[in-house]
Amino acid sequence: MRTSKTKSKQKQLLIKSRTENLTTVREFVSLAVEEVNIPQDIAGDIVLAVDEACTNIIKHAYKFFPDGDITIQLKYSEKNIKVKITDHGASFSPESVPTPDLKKYFEEKRVGGLGMYLMKSLMDEVHYKSVPGKYNQVLLTKKLNSTN
């Protein structure tokens, strides 16, 4: 894993696709958002959303293959925080994962799929881009102007 600071308001982390690296991901995001003066609960939302995105990549894109690359780029301004997470695993179609009806979800005792729902709930925007055979990207945006 390596970190770099390419611009004053952009940071990047590269990790291998292992769940043990989720701690590193959370610490990286926590430290980066500390530089923006945002409430602690908003910072916590961003940390959790990035954890969920990386967990989905490890489980579904790389299917627990431990040596895939995951790049996390975090850009922040006074208006928003954007996190771009890139992997080179199996491509993914977000349309194939419907937003769960939580009541029905519980009745059916489903276990997976909560991560994407959490990401959408915690962030203002969640966008996916997939170029099969090349890369997948998840772009998470948290707007700050209304909360800061």
Binding site: L22, E52, T55, K109, V111, L114, G115, L118
Partner: peptide, 15 residues
């Protein structure tokens, strides 16, 4: 701290 993977454990056993 808890993420959805942790929440899923409760779902897996409750039934």
């Amino acid at each position: 701290y808890i993420s959805s993977a942790g929440l899923g454990v409760f779902m897996a056993f409750i039934e």
